[in-house]
């Protein structure tokens, strides 16, 4: 890890320690509003104006590391969505508005069209839409930046109480639109990569916490980590976490300029599977204690259960991989696997 990246991640750790207490988390989950102090602190450090490939102080891999670390801390704010939007806008050459941004996942938007400079259609599951003024979306071959103030037509939350709202795109105003070939595919793949990075970050947290918990918790006169059954659970959790981060790193390396759809599919499918297995193992290790609302484990596991389904769940990406190999012919499977080196 580079020194710059290490400093940045430490700085994020410090901000989280100083500005996000349990009351702020509970308030964010209940209200659907992110803690303003937290966003301001990140903003001041330049951590919210990242994501573009060529601009800003941070490289792409560094910004992905920051998103992963934010997920490690289960930060209740739209940092990943802002980074994703900035990356897409930067690639399209659209001027990037300041502040938090959101993105419409193509898989949950219906009848999206851009005709005569006006949008139409319905988007569901849009992160934090109620509290954000601008969204990025794909309409046909166009990447669109839209002002969505007043366009929220319904409110909801995912399993982690992160706002996931509906947008009546007819009420959104087009700010800019630029032709981008296969725009929906690009938005979807970049979004899936960001979610994979987040899954991997949250799994690291679950592993860290499970290791310290099993080392501290004493039953039958010794820490439960001394029991072989528990050691094997932790080994499996470490393996799933390692697989998720390896698959994700591979996708990030392959996707600097634009998403590599094969690598992203591998990452989202593998990290999503690890999320399910990993959260089940962690809850087993934490026992009844970890099954309470009060316990911090749920901040990670409810995000794992939600993020694995966003921008396409495992089955979606697995099917894409299966179809791609089948269509290419069995004899080219190995060349595809070794194609990146």
């Amino acid at each position: 890890m580079s020194e710059t990246r290490d400093l940045m991640l430490r700085s994020l750790d410090r901000i989280v320690h100083d500005t996000l207490d349990i009351n702020a988390r509970v308030a964010a989950d209940a209200s659907g509003q992110w803690p303003g102090k937290l966003w301001a602190a990140l903003d001041e450090q330049g951590m919210t104006a990242i994501g573009e490939v060529t601009e800003g102080d941070l490289g792409f891999a560094d910004s992905m590391a920051l998103v992963g670390r934010a997920a490690y801390h289960a930060l209740p704010l739209p940092l990943a969505e802002t980074v994703l939007a900035r990356r897409l806008l930067g690639r399209a050459g659209i001027d990037i508005p300041d502040g938090p941004l959101t993105v419409v996942a193509p898989g949950v938007a219906t009848e999206v069209a851009l005709t005569g400079g006006r949008l139409s259609g319905l988007a569901r599951g849009v992160p934090w839409a109620r509290a954000i003024s601008h969204a990025v979306l794909a309409a046909g071959d166009m990447l669109v930046l839209a002002d969505i103030s007043g366009a929220t037509s319904g409110q909801g939350v995912n399993m982690a109480d992160e706002p996931r709202d509906a947008l009546d795109l007819g009420r959104a105003r087009v700010v800019a639109s630029v032709q981008m070939s296969r725009a929906a595919s690009a938005v979807e793949a970049d979004g899936a990569m960001l979610r994979a990075v987040q899954l991997s970050g949250a799994l690291s947290r679950v592993l860290d916490d499970a290791l310290s918990w099993t080392g501290d918790r004493v039953q039958f006169g010794k820490p439960i980590s001394k029991f072989q059954a528990v050691q094997h659970l932790m080994a499996q959790l470490a393996a799933e976490t390692a697989a998720a981060s390896a698959a994700t790193d591979m996708a990030v390396v392959a996707s600097v300029a634009a998403p590599d759809r094969f690598a992203v599919a591998v990452a989202k499918a593998r990290a999503g599977e690890a999320a399910g297995k990993g959260s089940a193992i962690a809850h087993q290790a934490f026992g009844a204690m970890g099954f309470t609302r009060e316990h911090h484990l749920q901040y990670a596991t409810r995000r794992l259960w939600s993020w694995r389904d966003e921008f396409g769940g495992e089955a979606y990406w697995q099917a894409e991989l299966g179809r791609a190999i089948a269509a290419n012919g069995a004899d080219r499977l190995w060349a595809t696997i070794t194609g990146t080196g």
Partner: peptide, 22 residues
């Protein structure tokens, strides 16, 4: 292939690519 079969096989492809990377 049928979508369900494609997903079953595709899952193996995701595992394979990850393991080879590791």
């Amino acid at each position: 292939p049928h979508p369900a079969a494609a997903a079953e096989f595709g899952r193996l492809v995701a595992h394979l690519a990850t393991l080879r990377h590791m």
